[in-house]
């Protein structure tokens, strides 16, 4: 437990996230010494996502820190942070319900688009970020930043969750290769 001990929870672990962007990560150089509104919102989202996935009740009175820094921003910052943090949490051996995979999706010219890049994000169409526990198809976080007709919602969520599962396949393969490699080396 770091910092104020009064924040410690007696029945579960505290998930503490910190999201920041490097000054050189975006096109225009911007110093954000204490983070801006956008990054504190992102911090909150990350925290919610991982509180849903990590089995926090196993470790009372302790704290799990997740620090994310964006080095190059080209859209999908939240999603990349979640996917990277999932791998980090698995590597640290922290028990989770499932992987958390995230992907963004947008709706431009009547077509749902998965995994938006920066240009697609700034065009201003509706976009949504989805964090999924892919094995059980549970949603850890769903966020939408504009209004969208209900009829389109299903298609766009469909596109996002399909992309999440594709991300899951990639992450899972990497984790398994690593596992195999290390167990073979340890030769237990």
């Amino acid at each position: 437990m770091r910092g104020s001990r009064s924040k410690a929870l007696h029945d579960q672990a505290l998930v503490n996230c910190q999201y920041s962007m490097a000054t050189f990560s975006t096109g225009d150089r911007k110093r954000r010494p204490h983070g801006d509104r956008q990054s504190s919102e992102m911090t909150l989202h990350l925290k919610q996502t991982f509180e849903a996935a990590i089995l926090t009740q196993l470790y009372p009175r302790s704290q799990i820190d997740i620090y994310v820094q964006i080095l190059q921003a080209d859209g999908g910052n939240y999603c990349a942070s979640v996917n990277a943090a999932t791998l980090a949490v698995i590597d640290a051996g922290i028990p989770m319900r499932d992987y958390v995979c995230a992907c963004s999706a947008g709706f431009i010219e009547e077509t749902p688009l998965a995994d938006l890049n920066y240009v697609e994000e700034v065009t201003g169409g509706p976009q949504l970020a989805l964090a999924l526990l892919p094995k059980s198809d549970q949603i850890a976080l769903l966020e939408m930043n504009a209004r969208l007709h209900e009829d389109h919602l299903e298609r766009i969520i469909e596109a996002a969750s399909k992309a999440c599962k594709d991300v899951y396949a990639v992450l899972d393969q990497v984790v398994r290769e690593h596992l195999q490699e290390v167990t073979a080396l340890l030769g237990k």
Partner: peptide, 23 residues
Amino acid sequence: ERLAQGLPRGAGEGGRDLVAPGD
């Protein structure tokens, strides 16, 4: 570099299950 490339692959698999979260 991948470390286990040179090692026998079967060594890690025979009879032992490797699992990932959610399996």
